[in-house]
């Protein structure tokens, strides 16, 4: 601890600290720090090209960082004694030899990791792929490939799961299955880190979010909190037959007011209860009083505005 090294624990926590990757002309990841807690699904969000995949690959020792560290349960991935028993990763859908059967793909991994052969059968059963066990990989649909990838990640029954865009190319049924599967894993106390650019999906799946853009951290925290922090600036939608009267009363409390359509005010700067009280005091009839809830999609677009796109 004195020399800054973390002692190895098995808490399943992921700690990314000052992580940087400089390619020839592009700083793909720039001084990125965040933590991922066990027992929760953490969504790793960012527009395409934000550096999500590079970050995950540095975390897994596939890409060497220019600076910074990334640890899982207090250890670098390369220092884990039995990596597959501690971390399962699903990185790209097409990562098996096309001429090899699904079951043999898993057996090759079992052999290398020193896991018993029957783990391959168990993992296939876990993802519902047993009927296709002896079919060659090139005959698999995208959804089946994704499931095989998850089976491979589950071989060592790991504490930590890391998935890069697992929803890519899945049909709605597949996405629903994946969502249930990952939530269940987190419920069992495992750490689940899922990268995605599909925000609507994350809103249904994630407990926490880490949002990055242009290789830098934009926001990190529980989904509700990130949404809530944006809700503070949210406006309240008020429908009333006496719009002018209410507007005058609210302006006296330094609220900002816009009119959307006839009889509808979009009020900023004050919250819904304050508007309700003002209306009561002024004797104004209210037909609607709603705080506009920002969805993750809008928050995300606002947070990453101007930083997305090609760099």
């Amino acid at each position: 601890m004195t020399d800054g090294q973390r002692s190895p624990t098995n808490d399943g926590q992921i700690v990314v600290s000052g992580l940087t990757k400089q390619y020839k002309n592009v700083r793909a990841v720039n001084n990125l720090s965040f933590t991922v807690a066990p027992g929760r699904v953490t969504g790793f969000l960012g527009p395409n090209g934000a550096g999500k995949t590079t970050t995950l690959r540095m975390l897994l020792n596939l890409v060497t960082p220019t600076a910074g560290t990334a640890t899982i349960s207090g250890q670098r991935y390369a220092d884990l004694a039995t990596p597959l028993r501690q971390v399962g990763a699903v990185l790209e859908a097409s990562s098996a030899h096309k001429g090899r059967t699904g079951i043999n793909h898993l057996r090759v991994i079992c052999a290398a990791a020193g896991l018993p052969k029957q783990r391959a059968d168990e993992a296939l059963a876990l993802v519902g792929l047993t009927p296709a066990a002896k079919r060659k990989f090139k005959g698999y649909s995208l959804g089946m490939k994704q499931r095989l990838g998850i089976a491979a990640a589950m071989l060592g029954d790991p504490r930590v799961l890391i998935l890069d865009e697992p929803a890519n190319g899945l049909d709605p049924e597949g996405i629903r299955w994946m969502r249930g599967f990952l939530k269940n894993l987190a419920h069992e106390g495992r750490t689940v880190l899922v990268s995605s650019h599909l925000l609507s999906e994350m809103q249904l799946l994630a407990d926490d979010v880490v949002i990055i853009a242009a290789g830098q951290l934009v926001r990190q925290g529980p989904v509700d909190q990130v949404l809530g922090s944006m809700a503070q600036g949210a406006r309240v939608r008020v429908r009333t037959p006496q719009a002018e009267v209410l507007a005058a009363a609210l302006k006296a409390q330094s609220a900002t007011i816009e009119t959307d359509e006839q009889g509808v005010l979009l009020v900023g700067g004050v919250d819904a209860p304050t508007i309700g009280r003002s209306a009561l005091a002024a004797g104004v009839e209210l037909h609607e009083l709603t705080t506009e809830r920002p969805d993750l999609e809008r928050v995300f677009l606002e947070l990453t505005a101007g930083k997305a796109g090609i760099r």
Binding site: P83, A89, L91, E92, S95, H97, A112
Partner: peptide, 18 residues
Amino acid sequence: TNEFFHQTATTTFLTTPR
């Protein structure tokens, strides 16, 4: 080269980081 052609290098090096 198969490992790179079929993108299994990732799985191989995840299984054995050394």
